[in-house]
Amino acid sequence: MRVETAELADVLLFTPEPFRDERGLFTRTFESRLFDSELSKSRQNRRVPTRASDFIEDSQSRSNRGVVRGMHGRSGRGEAKLVRCSHGAVFDVLVDIRRESPTFGVQQAFTLDDVAFALLYVPSGFLHGFQALTPTADVCYRIDREHDPREDIAVAYSDSELAIPWPLPVSHVSTRDAAAGSWSQLMESA
């Protein structure tokens, strides 16, 4: 498995190397030992508290082409997550909202798909969202805390300060996402 550091502090991208033959393919999409080893390197420089065994909840979403989900985050101690696209492809976006971070306010996009099988590690303290690029896209999340709706935070996917370059026209967003506040409002409330 190949591991890449992202431009955003503490974010890692794990890309498996599938075995392919006439039957199709086989790949391991997660290895706890490798995950813990890579994060221990981050811990030497900064406090990154997540370990593979910390993930307690798995979720999955299915979205149609052009749908945007996001930009979501958590208040309090936040939530770390592992994100991958198990079917189709998505344009996945992170925004660092950790004021003490060297990449505070910076965004980075990744293409996650069912070809490369990349797994994105998102530490706590990020806004996260994505747009489905294929007729349908399934996104799987492994999260390190139980969901508490009282801690949900969001910034509008179309916020002019973030200016996220969604690659397709947005076909649909949830009512909640359409009513989300701005980056400025989030910064004022934090």
Results as ranks from 00 to 15, higher is better:
residue 84 R to Q: 08
residue 92 D to S: 02
residue 174 S to A: 01
residue 66 G to I: 04
residue 125 G to V: 04
residue 131 Q to C: 08
residue 101 S to C: 07
residue 183 W to L: 00
residue 110 F to P: 00
residue 153 I to R: 07
residue 72 H to C: 04
residue 32 S to T: 12
residue 173 V to H: 05
residue 23 R to S: 07
residue 114 D to S: 03
residue 147 H to E: 04
residue 25 L to G: 13
residue 144 D to I: 04
residue 2 R to H: 14
residue 6 A to R: 02
residue 47 R to H: 15
residue 52 A to E: 00
residue 29 T to P: 01
residue 89 A to W: 00
residue 148 D to A: 11
residue 44 Q to K: 11
residue 115 V to Q: 12
residue 164 I to Q: 10
residue 166 W to S: 05
residue 95 V to R: 01
residue 109 A to M: 07
residue 183 W to M: 06
residue 75 S to Q: 12
residue 99 R to T: 15
residue 162 L to K: 08
residue 96 D to M: 07
residue 99 R to Y: 12
residue 64 N to S: 15
residue 31 E to V: 11
residue 46 R to Y: 05
residue 80 A to W: 00
residue 185 Q to N: 10
residue 92 D to Y: 10
residue 145 R to M: 06
residue 108 Q to Y: 04
residue 147 H to C: 06
residue 110 F to Q: 00
residue 79 E to V: 09
residue 89 A to D: 05
residue 166 W to H: 08
residue 175 T to M: 10
residue 142 R to T: 14
residue 178 A to V: 08
residue 5 T to N: 13
residue 31 E to H: 11
residue 61 S to E: 05
residue 50 T to R: 04
residue 64 N to F: 15
residue 17 E to V: 09
residue 163 A to G: 13
residue 77 R to S: 15
residue 104 F to V: 03
residue 22 E to C: 11
residue 160 S to H: 07
residue 152 D to E: 14
residue 29 T to I: 11
residue 89 A to L: 05
residue 121 Y to I: 04
residue 164 I to Y: 03
residue 164 I to W: 00
residue 1 M to Q: 06
residue 169 P to K: 13
residue 167 P to I: 07
residue 5 T to E: 12
residue 28 R to L: 14
residue 11 V to Q: 01
residue 6 A to K: 03
residue 79 E to F: 14
residue 154 A to Y: 06
residue 70 G to H: 01
